[in-house]
Design a protein around this nucleic acid. Structure first.
Lengths: 105, 105
DNA sequence: AAGATTTATCGTATATTTACGATGAACGAT
DNA sequence: ATCGTTCATCGTAAATATACGATAAATCTT
């Protein structure tokens, strides 16, 4: 992103852009769907369902966690990930707000 | 993105991820809002309202155009940009669909 | 025709993203 | 205590993204 000038934008636009960035890879969209369909699950379970290595999936999980869209809970040597519905609700709300502003529909 | 494995995902997830990528910068969200508030406008008009150089704004416009969220019409030496409501509607619809799948709200 | 205006593109620098294998850290099981 | 399992992190490579100034291309104005 080089030396980005993001400070010059509103907090709302920056937050939404950040959420959009987290959604900007099909693997991460897939992960959210997987977590929903299984309610919650271990990393290994997610890796199985994606055409990516364990380390790459771990990075995608980290990105989703960074923006708060998912939570990870340590369970022995495993880690159980799940959707963070609070952040997701907020994301939906803000996204709807954006569309209500810019969309004629 | 290195050598991305995006071929292994569904078209829907890839399309949505691509739309999200286009929204993944506050300047581009701002541009969509500006285009809405002014209905349509020239590049210079947009540049005025952003803390970015003309060439950088031009790149952001190109990214929005790439995914079809905006259209540009040449008008003399100027170019008039406007929202593409068709793509935007589809984006909203697909985004809603995603949220309806993954969101408990 | 010459000059001004407008915008896209080029060239460039730096940061970030995506991917992988290898390694390390934490835990459970033997 | 050692071994296997699970996952994050490190190191690395290549592609993209972001930003800018400079330049080119197209069009208006004079």
């Amino acid at each position: 992103m080089a030396f980005s000038k993001k400070e010059e934008f509103t907090k709302e636009d920056m937050w939404l852009a950040d959420i959009a960035k987290a959604l900007a890879h099909p693997a991460r969209i897939r992960i959210l769907k997987i977590l929903t369909s299984m309610n919650a699950c271990m990393v290994g379970n997610i890796v199985e369902q994606l055409p990516l290595s364990q380390s790459t999936v771990s990075q995608h999980l980290k990105e989703l966690k960074r923006v708060g869209l998912i939570d990870g809970e340590i369970d022995g040597p495993k880690v159980c990930y799940c959707i963070n519905n609070k952040t997701l609700s907020k994301a939906k709300k803000e996204m709807d707000k954006l569309y209500s502003i810019i969309c004629n529909c």
